[in-house]
Design a protein around this nucleic acid. Structure first.
Lengths: 172, 172
DNA sequence: CCGAATTGCTTTAAGCATAAAATGTTTTCC
DNA sequence: GGAAAACATTTTATGCTTAAAGCAATTCGG
């Protein structure tokens, strides 16, 4: 048995007598800060999309996914990529088909599958929005140096991997 | 006129003839990664809160705010702290009062103001949830070294400041 | 004082989001 | 071939979220 658990150990959850509840306040503060940053930027982007283009963020996100897939995507693909529930996509697509931005058809080889893609209108509108959107993001991150950006990218990649591992751990 | 704008310049938005549209792909990628991380972790926390305590994340967040304010808070305070709309808080509070977790009363000095605080039940339940929640967060960030955590904190602070500045710039 | 902002909150209408159950389709595997 | 499992999507029930409009109480400027 290790004298001191100096870092992360699986043992904690398996050895019975863990006396020190351990202090995870730093991680908690980090999580709250991460959340604050995201909420702040997301709210800003949402507001600008609404003001300038009268479009919602989820609609924009969905169109962004489709813009990268000229041959279309299935609803499941979209759902995975956007990390939202299946049912959510159904409604979102419904409204975007309604407004003429999306085209939806049943796959010919598998009648369970719906393939959606941007219409000409949808693509044109998205491109316009995306160009402006990119400048907003650049402005929101304007005070970060290129080095900061690189470093953040690296640390967030590490964070993502860590979280995915933890999520997988739970599911198993 | 500077020969080359080698970094961020206000000039860009003021001098008419900016030929190069500039490449902000890095910032865009950073934003997407930030969003992915947050969504991933948030979804995980949401799921665990639901499974273990049958509580939603917004409810938990609201209780967390109140736990830090033994004398209670006004709805506006809560709304600002949580960075959500006023109307949102109204409904959340309604349901939490209903379930006996919150106590709400009209301020005696200003009858527009509603002061809410945790009930004994609310506080007890929150403390139980918070303790477990902290271990989840620790686990989700487990692969980050203490140095990584510090560095991320620093960079996110910088990011937050930058975004706030940009948001203020727009509002003015 | 008193009308005009301002403030704090609620309501409304629309849309977003989830989990879980239901529906129809295709595979799998005896 | 045919039951059972797996799959893609939709439906259902509930709750969250926003922007904008509305209401009541307070404060401000003349």
């Amino acid at each position: 048995m290790p004298a001191e658990s100096d870092c992360t150990e699986m043992l904690d959850s398996e050895t019975k007598a863990v006396e020190t509840p351990e202090d995870h306040a730093e991680e908690l503060r980090l999580w709250l800060r991460l959340l604050t940053c995201t909420t702040l930027i997301e709210g800003e982007v949402r507001g600008r999309l609404r003001q300038r283009f009268d479009v919602t963020l989820p609609r924009f996100d969905l169109m962004a996914q489709l813009d990268k897939a000229p041959d279309g995507m299935t609803l499941s693909d979209v759902s995975k990529r956007m990390m939202v529930s299946n049912g959510n996509v159904t409604g979102l697509v419904e409204r975007l088909v309604e407004s003429g931005h999306l085209d939806r058809r049943t796959s010919e080889t598998d009648r369970r599958v719906q393939v959606i893609r941007l219409t000409k209108l949808g693509r044109a509108e998205f491109r316009k929005m995306a160009a402006e959107h990119e400048t907003w993001i650049a402005d929101l991150f304007a005070d970060l140096s290129p080095k900061d950006v690189r470093e953040l990218m690296r640390l967030l990649a590490k964070t993502k991997a860590s979280a995915q591992k933890s999520a997988a751990r739970r599911r198993s």
